[in-house]
Amino acid sequence: MTIEIDGLTKQYKEHVVVDQLSLNIKMGEFFALLGQNAAGKTTTIKMLCGLLSPTAGDALLDGESIVHHQVAAKKKLNISPQETAVAPNLTVFENLLLMGRIYGCSKTEAKKRASAQMNLFGLTPRQSNKAKTLSGGYKRRLSVAMAMMSNPKILFLDEPTLGMDVRARRDLWKILNQLKGQVTIVLTTHYLEEVEMLADRVGIMHRGRLRTLGTVQQLKHETKKNSLEDVFLELTEEGAL
């Protein structure tokens, strides 16, 4: 198992935002965490990335505890945050180099990796454009490419296609499909299509709780529904618990 989550909980005063989350994710798996706004997806990812300390529970990333061995765990992962977190005045190439160097690559190695990522993400023609001049779709590609610069074992993508137009979204899906198998990916989204296109397995979160877990086929079968949309609507109905 690459990710073992055990009873992970985050509570703000009375408000339980993530409630006793437990699940395992295999090496190389593409896992989608699906849920409405405020379901607790970002909070879960932040805890797994060591950006937020859990109120209770723990998770092991490639064997390293996010509570007890945070620095070791951080070396295994990288994240593309919900907002497109790029350095606005640096070029595409410089942004990528920066990430490589921060994770300890030599200059030569960082350049090699940056070229490879630019090829994969279709960023080569934009390599000397400043990040702030890129369109939303390209910014997002850059953001994911930056996360790949550290050769992470685990990649967290928080709503990577939020606010993208149809074509940009399809383009990014194609790219993400190429990453499949190379790296364990945890993606959050509220787009059902995205899950059906990309995910090996899906977990549906509602009000901080994991409502169900399995392949899209399994979920349809278990709930006797024809589409993921029907499954989702049933499990996230107001009052459903």
Binding site: G50, L51, K74, L77, E83, A85, I102, M146, S150
Partner: peptide
């Protein structure tokens, strides 16, 4: 402040710096 609001800092905080 900008790095914080653009979440750039989040990326940096997730790194082993």
């Amino acid at each position: 402040g900008k790095d914080k609001s653009s979440s750039f800092l989040m990326r940096i905080f997730a790194s082993p710096l």
